[in-house]
Simulated assay, not measured.
Amino acid sequence: MTDPFEARFDRLILLVGRLNYMWTNTESLLIHLIAGLTGTSKDVAVIIFLTLNTTRARIDLVERLAKMEGRPAQVRDPILEHTQRLAKLSGIRNKYNHCIYSFDPESGNPKTILMRIADRKTDIKLGREDTVDDNALLQIEAVVDQLSAANRDIWKLIRQLGFPV
């Protein structure tokens, strides 16, 4: 029989896997926005997308292309709405992808240890720890659901705008 702590960790790993899958799948839709906004083929847009090695850089590019002078508001505004939505959702994804996992010795709950240095005025702080409790798991599930909805909405926009698919 599976230990309850092991079951919680298994649930966490499955959710992080779903989060990664949904994130990657949804972020890749930026390729179609790049192609449409630049008037290039999807293949050229793939090269541009892969050359930019962070989500933030990809979102920045799409937003800047959408804001270019002469871009109609009916194209610009929905694109900006979707890129801002993705940027907001990226926080949870980053948290669970840029950490290591450990277990609380008393409760057995999984914990995340952030793999980032926080520079302070006179010192640094390493490895902020957060317990992955039921609320955290529900939060990941909610983000996966929101990414799924964002994916559908961005596909709808791509088709409405007639961008390359």
Rank of each mutant, 00 (worst) to 15 (best):
S102E: 07
F49I: 04
T54S: 15
M115W: 05
D104K: 01
Q84I: 02
T54E: 09
T112N: 06
L61H: 02
A87W: 11
I79C: 11
T51W: 06
R71V: 14
S90F: 09
A87Q: 15
Q74D: 15
A57Y: 05
F103Y: 01
I113N: 08
L89F: 12
P105C: 01
E129F: 00
A66P: 09
K111I: 09
H82N: 13
L52R: 11
I100T: 05
P72L: 10
A87K: 15
A57G: 08
D130F: 10
Q74E: 15
G70E: 07
P110L: 07
H82Y: 15
C99F: 00
A57W: 03
R71T: 15
A87T: 09
T83G: 13
I47F: 07
D104P: 02
A45F: 03
M68S: 10
A73F: 07
V62P: 06
I48K: 08
E81K: 15
E81T: 13
E81P: 04
I59L: 15
G127M: 08
T112M: 07
L89A: 11
E69T: 11
A118S: 11
F103D: 00
L50S: 09
I117H: 05
K121H: 10
R85D: 14
Q84E: 15
D119H: 14
R120W: 09
G91V: 12
M115H: 04
L61W: 02
R120Y: 11
M68E: 14
I113G: 04
T55M: 11
S107P: 04
A87C: 06
I100D: 01
R120M: 14
K95Y: 00
K95N: 02
R116W: 08
C99Q: 01
E69S: 14
G108S: 03
Y96C: 02
I124D: 03
L50W: 13
I47E: 15
K111W: 01
M115A: 08
T122C: 01
R64E: 13
Q84C: 11
K88Q: 14
T112D: 05
K95P: 03
I79G: 08
L114S: 12
H82R: 15
T83R: 08
L114G: 03
T112W: 03
K67F: 04
G70T: 08
I79E: 07
V62G: 02
F103V: 10
T55R: 01
R56A: 14
S107M: 03
I79Q: 08
N109H: 09
D60F: 01
S102T: 07
T112A: 04
L50A: 06
K125H: 10
E129L: 02
I79M: 07
A118Y: 12
L89H: 07
R120Q: 13
C99L: 00
R120P: 00
K121M: 06
K121P: 00
Y96W: 05
D104E: 02
D60M: 04
H98L: 03
M68T: 10
I48Y: 08
I113P: 06
A57C: 01
K67R: 15
C99W: 00
R71G: 00
L61A: 03
N94E: 07
T55L: 12
K88V: 08
N53W: 12
P110C: 06
S107L: 04
G70R: 11
D104C: 04
R120H: 14
T112G: 06
I113C: 05
R56T: 10
K111R: 14
R56Q: 12
K67I: 01
V62H: 03
L52C: 06
L52A: 05
